[in-house]
Computed example of a mutant assay.
Amino acid sequence: MDAIASAQERAAVAERAVIAAYVHRYGPVAWAHAATARDGAHTWHYWWHAHLVHVLCEAQHHRPSPARRRLVDDLLRGVTLRTAGSWTTPFYDDIAWMGLALAEARPSGRARVRIARILERAVDPNVGALPWRTGSVLFNAPANGPAAMVLAPSRHRGRAAQLSAWIAATLDDPATGLVRDGIEHGVVRSEVWTYNQGVAVGAALALGDTDRAAAVVRAVERWCAADDGLFPAVGGGDGGLFAGILARYLAAAARILTGPDAARAGRLVHRNAEALWAGSRGGRFPADPRRSVRAEGEDLDLSVQLGAWITLEADVTAASALTS
Rank of each mutant, 00 (worst) to 15 (best):
I4T: 13
A5S: 15
A7E: 03
E9P: 00
A12T: 12
V13M: 12
V13P: 01
R16H: 12
A21F: 01
Y22Q: 05
R25W: 06
R25D: 14
A30N: 11
H33R: 10
A34T: 12
W48L: 12
H49L: 06
H51P: 10
H54L: 15
V55N: 06
Q60P: 02
R63A: 13
P64D: 09
P66D: 05
D74W: 11
R77P: 09
R77N: 14
G78R: 05
V79P: 01
L81D: 13
L81P: 02
T83R: 09
T83K: 10
A84R: 13
A84E: 12
T89A: 09
P90Q: 13
Y92P: 13
D94N: 11
I95K: 00
W97D: 10
G99T: 03
A101W: 05
A101Q: 03
E104H: 10
V113M: 09
A116E: 13
P125W: 00
V127Q: 12
G128R: 04
A129F: 01
P131C: 12
W132L: 14
W132G: 15
W132N: 15
A141R: 00
N144W: 00
A147P: 07
M149Q: 14
P153H: 09
R159E: 13
A160T: 06
A160N: 11
L163E: 07
L163V: 08
A165G: 10
D172P: 00
D173Y: 01
D173E: 11
G177A: 08
G177T: 09
R180T: 07
H185M: 08
G186K: 12
V187I: 12
V188F: 04
S190A: 15
E191S: 14
W193H: 11
W193E: 02
T194C: 07
T194H: 02
G198F: 04
G198P: 07
V199Y: 01
A200D: 08
V201N: 02
V201Q: 02
A204W: 03
L207T: 07
D211H: 10
A213G: 05
A214N: 09
A215S: 14
V220H: 01
R222E: 14
D227G: 03
L230E: 08
F231M: 04
P232S: 08
P232F: 11
A233N: 08
A233G: 06
G235W: 00
G235K: 02
D238N: 14
G240H: 04
A243F: 00
G244R: 03
G244K: 02
L246V: 09
A247D: 08
Y249N: 07
L250I: 06
A253I: 01
A254I: 06
A254Y: 02
L257C: 15
T258M: 04
A263I: 07
A263L: 06
A263V: 06
R264H: 10
A265N: 04
G266N: 05
L268I: 07
A275L: 01
S280Q: 11
R281D: 11
P286L: 08
P289D: 05
R290L: 09
R291I: 13
S292G: 15
R294I: 03
G297D: 02
G297C: 10
D299I: 06
D299P: 12
Q305F: 03
Q305V: 10
G307S: 06
A308K: 01
W309G: 02
L312K: 01
A314S: 15
A319H: 04
A321V: 05
S324D: 11
